[in-house]
């Protein structure tokens, strides 16, 4: 019950932040990536704004447990593997082509028109197709 309430609050804050920061506007996102053209630095301000509360939040996790119980996420792995590199390249290409990443694609569902819905469907299809590609990359890593 409480878990659901907190999830709703977190999702609502995330959606509101994406909307008012302009990050559901594909022109601003593509503007950030357009470093050889008409560069728009807004995304850096959004990223900085989002990192500030999280710096504090990670500090607060030390020696504590989550409010609803359980454990905080384990320390992140230091391994830079093929999955991380190849996946991030593919993601960056798609991000640039449309100017949408997964959060804004969901947040803008109510006003993104039919093409926004189409993007979301294609993105979910891509997500479902990802596990075989990941395993293929692992096989390549083991073979080399």
């Amino acid at each position: 019950m409480m878990r659901g309430l907190f999830a709703f609050v977190a999702g609502s804050l995330f959606g509101t932040g994406l909307l008012i920061s302009g990050m559901t506007n594909t022109r601003k996102v593509q503007g950030w990536l357009d470093i050889f053209g008409n560069w728009d630095p807004t995304l850096a301000f959004v990223m900085a704004g989002a990192i500030i509360p999280m710096l504090l939040a990670w500090r607060l996790t030390r020696g504590r447990t989550p409010l609803v119980g359980g454990q905080f996420p384990a320390k992140p792995s230091m391994e830079i593997d093929r999955r991380l590199v190849v996946g991030s390249v593919l993601f960056g290409m798609g991000w640039a082509l449309a100017g949408l990443c997964p959060g804004p694609a969901m947040a803008s569902l109510s006003y993104g028109g039919i093409n926004g819905v189409l993007f979301l469907i294609a993105m979910i299809a891509g997500m479902l197709a990802a596990p075989p590609l990941g395993r293929q990359l692992d096989r390549l890593a083991n073979a080399s």
Partner: peptide, 29 residues
């Protein structure tokens, strides 16, 4: 637009902080 970006960013970070500190989860879309 930068100011709205910063304010929106703070809200995004606040959402991530709630999801982490309350539910113990990483807010990854």
């Amino acid at each position: 637009e930068w100011i709205w970006g910063l304010i929106g960013g703070l809200l995004i970070g606040l959402g991530a902080a709630v999801y982490l500190l309350c539910n113990g989860r990483i807010m990854g879309a």
